[in-house]
Design a protein around this nucleic acid. Structure first.
Lengths: 189, 189
DNA sequence: GATCGAAGTGGAGATAGTTTCCACTTTCGA
DNA sequence: TCGAAAGTGGAAACTATCTCCACTTCGATC
C-alpha cells in the first residue's frame, strides 16, 4: 500500500513531507476539522497539491498514523521477546494508555475518524490488532490467560478508551478499563 | 432541557413528532449522513421547519435517543429491584449488547456523534451512566464487586463496543468484552 | 550547460451541502 | 368571525470540498 514502486520527484517528496509534518502538528493540537483549504495554505502548498498527495482527510491521517503504529508494533514485539507473556501483554496495554495520554490530539483524531467508518485506517488497525493477537496467543500458550476471549474484544476496549478522551477523569477511568480487561483475562475459565 | 415551559401549538407538535419518527426510521437503517435538506423533504416539512425544531443534527439524534435511554434506565431500575446486585449488573450489561445488536443503526449513529465530540448527548449519556453507577454501587455494597474501578470505566468499554459495530465478528467480540469486564469486576482485589 | 518531455504545482471556479431569512399560512383565544 | 402570534417552506446566501488545467520545475540526455 505504500506504493514504493514510484520514486517521487525530489520536490514532490519535500512537499509530501511538509504536509505530513504540518498534519502531525495540527492533529496533535486537536483541531481536526480545520478547513482542508486552509490547511493547504498552512503547509505552504496549493490545494491541488494537497489533494494529489492525500485525496481525502483519511489518507492524511493514515500517513501520520503510520509511523505511530509501526513504533507501537515494534514495542509489542520487543516486550514479547523480553518478558513473560502475561506481563508483556499487561505492559503493552498500560503503555497504550500512556501513549494515548501523551498524544491526546492524535488519539482523538483517530477515534473520530474510525467512528465515521471510513475504513481508511484499516491497515494500521490490523497491524495493531495483530500485535495484540500475538501477545495474547503467547500468554494463552503460557497458560496465564484464558483462551475463550479474542484480541478483538481487547481492541474494542482500547478503542473505547481512545474515543472517550474528553471525559474529565479520563486517565483514571482508562486505567480502570485496562485493569478490568487484564483481571478478566487472568480469570480462570 | 425538555423545555416544557412552552406549550407547542398543535400543528407544530405534529410536525415535531413526524420529524422524530422519520429520524428514528432513517437512523435505524443506518444512513446517518443523509442530506439535511433531503431529510426535511422526506419527513414532509420544509428545511426551515426542520431547522427550527432541531437546529443541529445532534439535536435530532438527542430527541430520538431520549426515549431509548429512558427505557434502558427503567430496565436497570427494574433489574436492581428484582435480582441480586451482581446479577442485575451482569444482566443489564448483556442486555445492552442485545440492544445495540437489534438497534445497530442507532448505535452506530450515536457512536459517530459521540466521537465527533459534540457533547449534545451529554444528558442521555449521563442518565445511562447514572444507571450503571447505581447498579455497581449496589453490587459493591453487596460485596460481590470490587470498589476500586468506577462506572466510567464500564461506560468506556460499552462505548467501545458500540463504536465498533462494523467488525465482522461483532457479536462474539462484544460478548467477550462484557465477559472480561464482568470477570474483572468480580476479581477479588 | 542547453533542451525537452514528464512530473508536479497552485489556485480559480465548479460542485455540493448548510443555514438564514422572511413573505405567506395556520392556529386559536377573545 | 377576526386579529395577533406562532409556525411554515423554500429560495437565496453562504461555506466547504474538490476538479481541472495553464503554467512551472525537475532532471535525464546529449
Amino acid at each position: 500500500m505504500s506504493t514504493p514502486g514510484k520514486p517521487l520527484r525530489a520536490d514532490a517528496q519535500r512537499n509530501r513531507a511538509a504536509l505530513i509534518a504540518k498534519a502531525r502538528e495540527v492533529f496533535e493540537t486537536g483541531n481536526f476539522d480545520l478547513r482542508f483549504d486552509d490547511f493547504a495554505r498552512l503547509a505552504g502548498v496549493g490545494t491541488g497539491t494537497l489533494y494529489r498527495h492525500f485525496p481525502t482527510r483519511e489518507a492524511l491521517v493514515e500517513a501520520v498514523y503510520h509511523e505511530e503504529v509501526a513504533a507501537l508494533c515494534d514495542r509489542a514485539r520487543h516486550l514479547r521477546d523480553t518478558l513473560p507473556a502475561a506481563e508483556a501483554l499487561a505492559t503493552f496495554l498500560r503503555g497504550m494508555v500512556d501513549h494515548m495520554d501523551t498524544h491526546e490530539g492524535l488519539a482523538r483524531t483517530l477515534a473520530t475518524l474510525m467512528a465515521s467508518g471510513s475504513g481508511a485506517l484499516a491497515e494500521g488497525s490490523r497491524a495493531l490488532e495483530q500485535a495484540v493477537t500475538d501477545l495474547m496467543a503467547a500468554a494463552v500458550q503460557e497458560g496465564t490467560v484464558r483462551d475463550d476471549v479474542g484480541a478483538g474484544a481487547v481492541m474494542m476496549a482500547l478503542h473505547g478508551i481512545g474515543a472517550a478522551h474528553d471525559r474529565p477523569d479520563w486517565r483514571a477511568e482508562a486505567d480502570g478499563v485496562i485493569t478490568l480487561v487484564l483481571d478478566g483475562l487472568l480469570a480462570v475459565r
